[in-house]
Lab assay of single mutants.
Amino acid sequence: MDVFMKGLSKAKEGVVAAAEKTKQGVAEAAGKTKEGVLYVGSKTKEGVVHGVATVAEKTKEQVTNVGGAVVTGVTAVAQKTVEGAGSIAAATGFVKKDQLGKNEEGAPQEGILEDMPVDPDNEAYEMPSEEGYQDYEPEA
């Protein structure tokens, strides 16, 4: 019985440690998101679009440190934060509304985080759909 109880105690310690790591990862992701939003706020009209992409990228980098179902929630929060940063930029006159959601080359930025393969159960990952990809044929 002692062996059984000791095993359960060790398992509990492992769960607590994993929860603490997840909590730490979420806190880091939130900190990076805040950094990115402050970065966007300090940019001029020309830099705002690039700044919004930076927020998304920093958040995406930190999301990889967070495991399990938390990833889905962090990704949703990050996307809403990026959308909010863009709205703030438009409201303050840093950028025109028609410039939001495009990178410096004018290509749409939507789907940055949505296409990231995420499995809350950590069982399997699927690649994003290939609808947006084109076949590449090298020139002879």
Rank of each mutant, 00 (worst) to 15 (best):
V3S: 03
K6T: 03
L8D: 00
L8H: 00
K10L: 13
K12V: 15
G14H: 15
G14R: 14
V15G: 00
A19V: 11
A19S: 02
K21V: 09
K21F: 15
T22S: 10
K23W: 15
K23N: 01
Q24K: 15
V26T: 01
E28H: 05
A29V: 09
A30M: 13
G31D: 08
G31S: 12
K32M: 14
K34V: 14
G36Q: 15
V37L: 15
L38I: 03
L38A: 04
L38W: 06
V40S: 00
T44F: 15
K45F: 12
K45C: 11
E46I: 05
V48F: 07
V48H: 00
V49T: 13
H50G: 05
H50Y: 11
H50Q: 13
G51M: 15
G51C: 14
T54C: 15
V55M: 13
V55E: 00
A56C: 12
T59Q: 01
T59L: 04
E61H: 04
Q62E: 04
T64N: 11
T64P: 03
G67F: 10
V70W: 14
V70I: 14
G73Q: 12
V74M: 15
V74E: 01
T75V: 13
A76N: 11
A78I: 13
Q79E: 05
K80N: 03
T81C: 08
G84T: 15
G84R: 12
G84P: 02
G84W: 08
A85L: 15
G86V: 13
A90T: 11
A90Q: 14
A91V: 12
T92W: 15
G93L: 07
F94G: 03
K96E: 13
K97D: 14
D98E: 10
D98C: 13
Q99L: 11
L100R: 07
N103T: 09
N103V: 12
E104Y: 04
E104F: 13
G106S: 13
G106A: 07
A107F: 06
E110Q: 05
I112L: 05
E114A: 03
D115Q: 08
D115W: 05
P117F: 09
P117L: 04
P117R: 04
P117W: 11
P117S: 04
P120S: 08
P120V: 05
D121H: 10
D121L: 08
N122H: 10
E123C: 12
A124I: 02
Y125G: 11
M127Q: 10
G132L: 10
Y136W: 10
Y136H: 08
P138A: 12
